[in-house]
Design a binder for these strands. Structure first.
Length: 616
DNA sequence: TTAGGGTTAG
């Protein structure tokens, strides 16, 4: 009793004393001998649950169970391991596992699951390999996790297909859970055809399989495929649930098609699931990502029980729309109402500061986080990256660099990438090269960093270095993302690439574009060719820049979208200097509002002025 | 005795 009272909170003592005499599990430890009680499985589970967030107590319970001299039931052992997995203490899980004599398959499965759930896919794959070497036969419970691990190992491209081969070897490729994981894995690898084949040939194609496929597409840049699947699902008579709707809404946010998004929300109403907070949050986010700030605000105020995600969504939404004041005042409201915040909330707050160049405010929030007693909101790598972005974008490059050097945690590619981005804007070749050097080590395959480097050298006129970077990209097979812009019109998305003439209205678009540029030139516009990073003459630079995708998209919208509606353009990369000026002129000439979302933020153009105040 | 799908940021 003495020992127990030390490790078990007193309030659970009564639970222990009240349990019925069901001999599911017997404690014969010294602590209980004088009472000779038998405990039920439920009681032990209650006990474990009560301590499940305290590794110290859990470890003591485990020690007590061992000294009791009794064999521990499998259910209890799994529960115990699961507690440590949830706590992220994989070292202890591994220690327990290694102490076991000939662990059975389900324990191997638990260990693999632990590594996967704690973002250690390499370890998971390693354990699977060892399992094979020792001749332990994997089962249908092993593979969902092994496949998931393989999908997280893009550096071993063959791992996923190899796992698939094993699945076939063991004859479990038609087990729904296993097949679903395979589908998700192939989508991540970009093999949509294979994923589709697995889906179409599934024996039990249930709602979860549909949702898994839709979500996998939605989360891996195949938004159009996700929407097509969502529609196909409806036409085959499978009714969507909250999960399907959330994925579909998220796609509409990514693609910037809020008309389609509202259509999807109407389905939620028809199905009677519109009061689900996750669906409501997805709708808020969708509107924020489409630039519908006022409507999203109205919806937000009407949500009866918003959670931390609703608030964070709004804060980040205001931030990307350039409404930093609204973002910061909403955060103050959260604080004054005593609402819980989390690390994502702070990312929104810092990004609001960054988009508006509010350096001293940014420092204030960052220090607030650092001083917090709550461990969960101590600054993480992402917050450091935000601060580097804020300082760097404001031209304080040295301060940003010193900030990185003072970091208590190892800076990652996000942090160095933020510095590199700032160096490109402020043309600091020296620091930029330093950042580039680190990025070659940390993220050699990320195209956007290589493009930044190449652009930095190009604007400094160092074409020899530009050539080097491009050669390295070719050698590594790193491909630059082609720039495109899109416009939603009558529920359909129209895509435009630079210099693209494939759109059926191309002729009239180019004609109108020509007229506009002439008119703008008479008003003082001259093209800014500083963002053409090719070693070509001025005339060619002007020609490249005059048919950038966003210009084509804007003109398309001018021709087609009714004058009572704003022009909405989504761009997959950042807007260039010239297109920014162009958009300001167009908003002035045509008296139309142009809402353009680039890769990281919105630009709302009205009467020749942009909401970003030319700071982006 | 362990298994598949969803929202905020980056």
């Amino acid at each position: 009793m003495l020992i127990l009272s030390k490790i078990i909170p007193t309030k659970f003592f009564s639970t222990l004393q009240l349990v019925p005499f069901l001999p599911t599990l017997k404690f014969s430890s010294h602590a209980l001998t004088n009472r000779q009680k038998f405990l039920t499985k439920e009681a032990v589970n209650t006990l474990l649950k009560s301590c499940s967030s305290n590794p110290y107590q859990l470890k003591q319970i485990h020690a007590l169970l061992l000294t009791s001299g009794l064999s521990i039931k499998n259910s209890l052992l799994t529960h115990l391991l699961t507690c440590f997995i949830v706590l992220g203490d994989m070292l202890y899980v591994r220690q327990l596992f290694d102490e076991m004599h000939k662990p059975r398959t389900f324990l191997w499965n638990t260990l693999i699951r632990g590594y996967v759930q704690n973002d250690q896919p390499k370890e998971a794959a390693f354990i699977y390999k060892r399992m094979n070497l020792l001749g332990v036969r994997p089962d249908s419970f092993t593979f969902p996790f092994v496949i998931k691990a393989c999908a997280e190992l893009p550096e071993f491209k063959a791992a996923g297909p190899a796992a698939h081969a094993q699945v076939v070897k063991y004859g479990i490729e038609f087990v729904a859970v296993v097949r679903t994981e395979l589908m998700i894995m192939y989508v991540k690898l970009g093999e949509l055809g294979l994923a589709d084949f697995l889906f179409k040939t599934m024996v039990e194609r249930d709602l979860v399989a549909w949702n898994a496929f839709i979500a996998a597409c939605a989360q891996n840049g195949y938004g159009m495929n996700a929407l097509a699947l969502f529609r196909e699902m409806g036409s085959t008579g499978t009714r969507p649930d909250a999960v399907s709707l959330v994925s579909a809404l998220s796609v509409c946010g990514q693609l910037g098609c809020s008309d389609t998004g509202e259509e999807i929300y109407r389905i939620a109403r028809e199905e009677g699931i519109e009061c689900n907070i996750i669906v409501e949050n997805a709708r808020l986010d969708m509107h924020m990502k489409c630039g519908n700030i006022d409507f999203a605000t109205e919806l937000f105020e009407k949500i009866p029980c918003g959670n931390v995600i609703s608030w964070s969504t709004m804060i980040s939404g205001y931030a990307i729309n350039g409404e930093s004041e609204k973002a910061l005042s909403l955060f103050s409201r959260m604080q004054s109402e005593g609402l819980r915040t989390n690390y994502v909330t702070y990312l929104g707050v810092l990004s609001a500061c960054s988009h508006a160049g509010l350096v001293s405010q940014g420092w204030r929030y960052f220090n607030l986080m650092s001083r917090s007693d709550d461990e969960s909101i101590k600054p993480r790598k992402e917050h450091y990256a935000c601060m580097v972005d804020l300082l760097g974008r404001s031209g304080r490059l040295e301060e940003a660099y010193n900030f990185i050097r003072s970091m208590p945690i190892e800076p990652d590619s996000g942090v160095w990438g933020a510095l590199l981005g700032a160096c490109v804007i402020h043309q600091n070749l020296e620091l930029g090269q330093l950042a580039a050097h680190c990025l070659y080590e940390l993220a050699p395959d990320v195209a956007s960093y290589q493009v930044l480097m190449s652009n930095m050298y190009a604007s400094a006129g160092r074409w020899d270095f530009v050539k080097k970077v491009r050669q390295r990209m070719r050698k590594k097979g790193v491909r630059k993302l082609a720039a495109y812009s899109s416009v939603e019109h009558n529920g359909e998305l129209h895509f435009f690439y630079g210099g693209d003439r494939s759109h059926p209205q191309s002729e009239i678009i180019y004609e109108k574009l020509d007229c506009l540029i002439k008119q703008m030139k008479s008003m003082g516009y001259s093209s800014k060719t500083n963002s053409v990073f090719h070693d070509v003459d001025l005339e060619e630079k002007e020609s490249i820049i005059s048919t950038h995708s966003e210009k084509l998209a804007i003109v398309f919208a001018l021709i087609n979208v009714g004058p009572d509606r704003p022009i909405r353009v989504i761009k997959n990369l950042r807007i260039c200097d010239d297109c920014h000026t162009f958009s300001k002129f167009v908003s002035q000439i045509s008296l139309r509002e142009i809402i353009m979302r680039d890769k990281i933020r919105f630009h709302h153009f009205r009467n020749g002025v942009c909401s970003c105040k030319d700071f982006w």
